[in-house]
């Protein structure tokens, strides 16, 4: 009995294999995600019974919780899911194309670029320009910084190690700009900036959800279509070229997807750390290295991490509502250390 199911189009343009095990895990994870989503909607200042939550969502409720559920909690939980999924998959792609388990949106300049864009906006434009444009500033920052990194890494093609090193350098530069702006800005701006840098889903509304959703709807399937080349690329540039993969073209394409996914997530949620690094590792431990299977698993795990972190942030220290980023790091950091510890013994 084969352990894999292969999916191919007639021309073999799109083809991937999914292990049966992966399909089962995916099913279980989806159920877990639904469960956690409902729990996330139940938890808050006032606990709403999960059954009531489901009734309200399906439109059979009596409208008691309209405001709290639909205006406050639902957008936050949905944003947590989208942001976690986007960051997770962005990290997965980066780790695949750079072939380095430590690659993550934070390391190669996407997060630091977005931070720089956001902080410049907060320090110089907040008050005169509506705060609704803050995500735009962040995503512009992410795009520009990533582009500069790619450009500087180019020498007859881009090698992963060159990109990582230049990424670290440029990130440091962007962080220096952020620190300088924090020092010279006024108190109110500094407070806002720190909140943004920690990463927070506070105040999320449905409009944010509708703005972030299209990015995922377009980019996730695209990643899936391109999945087969990643498996080959993991064997190294030479072998991949030998097998007929246009390495540079695909690398650029994947990089673009990764930047857009992470950039859009960071734009709305700020510098939420560790999800992009940790979620891909967790899913690899569950379903192995087949890229096609890793995409949905990573997306769900990333979503779960951020929903749980935000749930803790909202409810653990009531009446305080704390930034989500505090707790993604609290979940992410120990796991990261554990990973390092584990790989040390191999």
């Amino acid at each position: 009995m084969p352990n894999y199911v292969s999916v191919r189009t007639k021309t073999n343009r799109i083809s991937f294999q999914i292990a049966k095990r992966t399909a089962w895990i995916l099913l279980l994870l989806s159920l877990l995600l639904i469960l956690i989503t409902v729990l996330g909607l139940s938890a808050g200042s006032e606990f709403i019974h999960p059954v009531t939550v489901v009734k309200e969502l399906l439109g059979y409720g009596n409208g008691d919780y309209d405001f709290v559920l639909h205006t406050l909690r639902l957008p936050r939980v949905l944003m947590a899911l989208l942001v976690g999924a986007a960051l997770g998959v962005a990290g997965l792609i980066l780790q695949g194309i750079i072939r380095n388990p430590l690659a993550a949106p934070d390391i190669i300049g996407i997060t630091s670029g977005a931070s720089m864009g956001a902080i410049i906006f907060i320090v110089y434009f907040m008050g005169s320009v509506s705060i609704q444009f803050l995500p735009l500033a962040a995503i512009l920052g992410a795009g520009i910084v990533s582009f500069i990194i790619y450009l500087l890494s180019w020498r007859k093609g881009v090698t992963p190690i060159r990109m990582v090193l230049i990424g670290i350098g440029i990130s440091a530069l962007a962080k220096a700009v952020v620190t300088m702006l924090l020092v010279i800005s006024n108190v109110a701006a500094t407070t806002k900036a720190y909140l943004w840098l920690t990463g927070s889903l506070y105040g999320a509304n449905m409009q944010d959800v509708y703005l972030l959703l299209p990015w995922l709807v377009i980019l996730m399937p695209l990643t899936f279509i391109l999945a087969r080349t990643v498996n080959v690329k993991e064997l190294g540039d030479e072998i991949a070229i030998g097998l007929g993969v246009k390495v540079q073209v695909y690398r650029l394409l994947f990089l673009l997807i990764s930047v857009m996914l992470a950039g859009s997530a960071v734009a709305f949620a700020g510098g939420i750390a560790f999800v992009g690094l940790v979620a891909p590792h967790m899913s690899r431990m569950l379903v192995g290295r087949s890229f096609a299977g890793l995409i949905p698993v990573t997306a769900i795990i990333g979503g779960i991490i951020v929903i749980v972190a935000d749930m803790v942030a909202r409810t653990a220290f009531l009446p305080k509502d704390l930034p989500t980023g505090v707790f993604t790091a609290a979940i992410g950091a120990p796991f990261f250390i554990y990973l390092l510890f584990r790989t040390r013994n191999q």
Binding site: G44, S45, E46, F67, V68, L72, R73, M126, G127, A188, A189, T191, K192, L195, S200, Y202, G203, R314, L318, P319, K320, D321, L322, P323
Partner: peptide, 23 residues
């Protein structure tokens, strides 16, 4: 002050809220 809890505010059913634009 930086992130007031919206659910807690809603629970109080106020008839006026005094806020600050910078925050």
């Amino acid at each position: 002050e930086t992130q007031p809890n919206l659910e807690e505010i809603a629970k109080l059913k106020p008839d006026l809220i005094i806020a600050s634009k910078v925050r």
